[in-house]
């Protein structure tokens, strides 16, 4: 009996250590994850391919400097209190805002308004300059872009979304925004992309940027491989 208690206590201590470490790692994740941004219901519907879908809007921002703040001067609606673009910002690392975790409803038409303020350059794979998976026109600063997409050597960031493994049918969305030709700061005049897509089945989707804005081989080191800067989740509910 005494030995059984001893064994039990050992197991409990072990489990407690494990839970403590686990909480540490979980907390580490929230160092890089902002509160979820939900797509806004417009209350309207629109016909897409013969189906009537609810329309949602989602605002997206890409900043050259993750240490800046997200407020009216950087594209947020007037009256928004300044909050850090990224909880754990790093000078010289770009980031997306207002969050890196989004929530959108399944099987809805999502209209995205994207303000891109970062600099850029050439893509690794010029195919990503072409929008894929969008519905209707894709506009840049109010003007429709050609079907072949934007100039692959003048790309700022891309918004590339994939469904969770096993989600069927195949869901893939990719839109590239051109670089900011001026001096890129968090408050400079953005390149505004507007596009719409139809969300897929429920699941935990992933988005990331396919423009190599990190360092190292392929430009995918550092910020590109750090979770929560150029990548994140989309909850499709």
């Amino acid at each position: 009996m005494k030995r059984a208690i001893g064994a039990l206590v050992t197991v409990l201590i072990g489990a407690a250590i494990f839970v403590a470490i686990g909480i540490g790692f979980h907390a580490q994740k929230y160092q890089s994850v902002a509160p979820t941004t939900k797509a806004v219901d417009t209350g309207t519907t629109q016909m897409v391919n013969g189906k009537s879908l609810k329309v949602y809007t989602l605002n997206l921002y890409s900043y050259p400097d993750s240490t800046g703040t997200f407020d009216a001067s950087t594209g947020a609606p007037a009256g928004t209190k300044p909050v850090a673009i990224h909880k754990n910002g790093n000078p010289g690392w770009p980031a997306y805002g207002p969050s890196n975790v989004f929530q959108i409803p399944a099987h809805a038409l999502v209209k995205v308004h994207w303000e891109q303020r970062d600099s850029g350059g050439s893509l690794n794979n010029s195919w990503f300059a072409k929008p894929t998976g969008t519905v209707g026109p894709v506009t840049l600063n109010g003007k429709e872009i050609p079907a072949s997409g934007i100039d692959p050597s003048q790309v700022g960031h891309t918004f590339t979304v994939r469904a969770e493994p096993g989600v069927d049918p195949h869901f893939f969305l990719n839109v590239a925004a051109p670089l900011n030709p001026g001096n890129p700061t968090d408050t400079s005049t953005p390149q505004v992309m507007e596009f719409s897509f139809v969300s897929g089945n429920k699941g935990l989707y992933e988005w990331n940027c396919e423009f190599p804005c990190g360092n190292g081989i392929g430009g995918f080191g550092a910020v590109m491989s750090a979770y929560g800067f150029m990548s994140g989740y989309i909850h499709v509910v």
């Binding site: 072990g14 250590i17 494990f18 470490i21 686990g22 790692f25 979980h26 580490q28 994740k29 890089s32 994850v33 969770e164 493994p165 096993g166 699941g203 935990l204 491989s225 750090a226 979770y227 929560g228 990548s231 989740y233």
Partner: peptide, 27 residues
């Protein structure tokens, strides 16, 4: 073994569900 085992437990906990959102991909 204790250190490696604790890590293994965390991996297995993350894999309990396909939608598990406990650890970030980086961790």
């Amino acid at each position: 073994f204790g250190a490696g085992g604790a890590m293994a437990m965390m991996i297995r906990t993350q894999l309990l569900s396909p939608h598990m959102n406990w650890l970030s991909p980086q961790s």
